[in-house]
Every structure is written in C-alpha cells, then in structure tokens.
Computed example of a mutant assay.
Amino acid sequence: MRNLAATLGLIILAPGAANADPVTIVALGDSLTAGYGLAPEDGFVPQLQRWLDEQGAETRILNAGVSGDTTAGGLARTDWALVPETGAVIVTLGGNDLLRGLPPEEARANLDAILTKTGERGLPVLLVPMIAPGNYGPDYKAAFDAIYPDLAKAHGARLAPPFLAPILAMPDRGAALQDYMQPDALHPNPAGVALVVETLGPEVLALIEGAK
C-alpha cells in the first residue's frame, strides 16, 4: 500500500511539476531595460520580476539590457542573448537611435532583423515602442513612430504601449518629470519604473501565456 500511495503521489504531482517550469523571458534593450542610474533592485527587470511573482506567474526574466545600445547594437548581440532556454522576448530598443538622430529606416531594418531572428526560433515577442520627439521634424517623427506597429503586424509580435507612456501621458508634464524621472529627464526613477511596470506587466502576462 505504501508503494502504491507513493506511485499515485508521483502520478498526481508530475503534471503540476511540469506546469511549474518557469518561462524564461529575455529582456533585450538599452539603458531603460538595464536600469541605468538605479539601485539594482529598482530597475525595470527586478521590479517587473517582483510584479509578476506577485501575480503568481511562473517566469524568470533575464536582463539583456545594455546602456547606450542602439537597434544596431541590439541586433549584433541578439544571437547570443537568446540563450537556449529562452521562451519569450521583450524588445525595447530605439531610444538611442532617437538621441543620435539616426535614420528611421536603419532602426526599422535592425528591428526587422531582430524580429526575424526571434521568429526563426518560434519565440513570442513583446515589442515596446519608442516615440520620436518633434524636434527632428514631422516627417522623421511619422517615419519613426510607424516602425513599431508596422513590424509588430508583419511579424505577429505583441505591440505594447510605449515604454514611458504612463509618465508622458500625465497632464502636468513638468510635475511628471520631477516626480517620476531622473534628473536627465530620459530615464525613470524607481517610482517611474513602478508606473511603467504597472502598464507593461499585463502585456508580459499575455506574452507568458503565448509562450506556454
């Protein structure tokens, strides 16, 4: 009887153990992903990991953010960033292309190539847009802003709200920058990251479901 009970226990527990295997998500990005200017525990990836843990999501996020990376830099390291256990990918690139005023067609080509590589691996992707400022002119802005929805549609990726949307959408822009951004006005502070996570967290949950 004891052996039978033990056998039954293994049969009952085995499916649960299989379902408990965490989905490994690679967060491929730049300083916004890396957590520039923040204590390690306050960055985007650690805060997102805690948020997902609180939701009971079985996942592990790998921080593949490199400060200063352009879309070209992200493309150059995509192959080795996608470790064998990768089950899904978050792509947050383009901010440094904007800071340098690089041609939108170059960013489009690089992101297209990144999504092609993830597609070849059969990996679901959450594509997080960057929004171009108006100082490069309306044509530049229109061309750059169109990259993300166009590529998400072409590759079947999930399109997230822009990374800084919950901060920049606040009615008092000056107060938002003071309360939720670092002094450089480019990177969110811990409170700002928390707002970003609240917005992107549900998108990542959907990404996890798509990876199962």
Results as ranks from 00 to 15, higher is better:
31 S>C: 09
141 K>Y: 06
158 R>C: 00
128 V>P: 01
191 A>P: 00
186 L>H: 05
134 G>E: 08
23 V>N: 01
41 E>M: 03
159 L>A: 11
25 I>E: 06
137 G>T: 02
179 D>S: 12
173 R>V: 14
17 A>D: 06
199 T>L: 12
197 V>L: 08
163 F>P: 06
12 I>C: 14
53 D>E: 13
177 L>A: 13
19 N>A: 15
135 N>G: 03
69 D>T: 03
35 G>V: 02
11 I>T: 13
93 L>N: 02
32 L>F: 03
208 I>C: 05
24 T>P: 01
139 D>P: 01
110 N>D: 14
7 T>D: 13
202 P>M: 07
71 T>L: 05
136 Y>N: 07
196 V>T: 12
205 L>S: 14
3 N>W: 13
95 G>H: 05
103 P>M: 13
69 D>M: 06
209 E>M: 00
162 P>K: 07
16 G>M: 14
65 G>K: 06
29 G>Y: 07
9 G>R: 11
92 T>H: 13
22 P>Q: 04
95 G>E: 04
133 P>C: 08
58 E>G: 06
87 G>Q: 10
62 L>R: 15
34 A>F: 10
25 I>W: 09
118 T>K: 02
79 D>S: 10
138 P>F: 01
21 D>R: 14
126 L>W: 01
19 N>F: 15
132 A>L: 09
24 T>N: 11
91 V>E: 02
55 Q>T: 09
137 G>L: 05
153 K>E: 14
192 G>T: 02
73 G>W: 06
210 G>M: 03
161 P>A: 15
100 R>E: 07
65 G>S: 08
109 A>V: 04
133 P>Y: 06
200 L>I: 10
36 Y>A: 09
106 E>R: 15
73 G>R: 00
21 D>E: 14
193 V>A: 04
210 G>D: 13
63 N>H: 04
67 S>V: 04
4 L>I: 14
10 L>F: 09
197 V>D: 07
152 A>R: 07
